[in-house]
């Protein structure tokens, strides 16, 4: 609509639509971010009291203090491992499900609704719920394994990261499936007809048409899931608590520093460092998506 002769009335109308969203954005995103930056240069703690400006000391601690750097490195490795595994498994399972559900069949709609259910529930509730299922002695999973005469591992103490992965995959595979389905449905049927007429075997159709044409959308889904997985917190809290070595993600460590150890200033500085890292990853990824789109000669 650029260049349209606008009048005072339409401009007011436009602001009245955008205004509320803008206010919310300022109140709940921009202000906390600015405040967080301020805090990161202080020695504020949760006990209240007075703050003092400490300059870059919090940042220096993060990058030089041996004991903190070790914790921080471990949390980073845990987060990375969790993110890579969770997103990869969700992508593979979600895409496979989407391929299976692509064609119309009787009962498709209710089946889709059931498959999407886990996505609709609160992660914290899901974590607690899975805690019960995975419980070593009374949990239904081990009950069933016992009935089948199999060993009953202590899931929640021996395979903590696996538990975390299991719940995350269970929750977010439907999301991947949904995006993959949208990608599949956007491929014009005529492309498949043309390939079929040109005697292209099924595997080649998949490799040369389905996969590349879905890739940009799948890439977007991976980006969304990865940014989400990188800040994994709620499941950790629900399943193992924030201070467990095996599952302490970056967010959990942040929580631990800020709230359990009450070092608000240090936590804030750490949050800023993490934020910069996440923005860097996301930027690389969107660049990649742009490049993909440009390669296909899409306009706009």
């Amino acid at each position: 609509m650029a260049g349209m002769p606008g009048t005072g009335g339409t401009r007011m109308l436009a602001w009245s639509f955008v205004g509320p969203a803008l206010l919310l954005l300022i109140a709940f995103n921009l202000f906390p971010l600015a405040w967080n930056i301020v805090l990161s240069f202080t020695n504020a703690d949760l006990s209240g009291g007075t703050w003092e400006w400490v300059g870059g000391r919090n940042y220096a601690t993060i990058f030089s203090d041996k004991s903190f750097a070790a914790k921080y490195g471990a949390a980073l490795r845990t987060t990375a491992l969790f993110t890579v595994l969770a997103v990869a498994i969700e992508l593979a399972l979600g895409f496979a499900l989407a391929l299976a559900l692509r064609r119309d069949f009787r009962g498709k709609t209710p089946l889709l609704a059931v498959l999407l259910l886990p996505m609709m529930l609160s992660p914290a509730v899901m974590g607690l719920f899975w805690n019960l299922i995975l419980e070593g002695t009374y949990g239904p999973l081990n009950q069933i394994l016992g009935l089948a005469g199999l060993s009953q591992p202590a899931w929640r103490t021996e395979f903590k990261l696996l538990c975390l992965l299991l719940v995350d995959v269970w929750m977010w595979t439907p999301f991947m499936m949904l995006i993959a389905l949208a990608g599949l449905n956007a491929i014009p049927a005529q492309l498949y007809e043309a390939a079929e007429i040109d005697r292209t075997p099924a595997w080649r159709v998949f490799a040369r048409i389905t996969l590349p044409l879905c890739a940009p959308l799948l890439g977007l889904a991976v980006l969304l899931r990865a940014t989400d997985a990188l800040k994994q917190f709620d499941l950790v809290m629900a399943i193992t608590g924030p201070n467990d070595q095996a599952t302490q993600t970056v967010s959990a460590l942040l929580y631990q520093t800020t709230f359990a150890n009450q070092k608000v200033g240090l936590g804030a500085a750490y949050a800023i460092v993490v934020l910069v890292g996440v923005i860097a990853v996301a930027t690389l990824f969107t660049r990649y998506l742009d490049w993909m789109a440009a390669r296909q000669g899409r306009e706009g």
Binding site: L191, A194, D198, R208, Q296, R298
Partner: peptide
């Protein structure tokens, strides 16, 4: 057989 479609159906990628 070879076929030409109304909307070209070229592989966009």
């Amino acid at each position: 057989v070879g076929m030409v479609f109304q909307f070209y159906a070229l592989y966009p990628h």
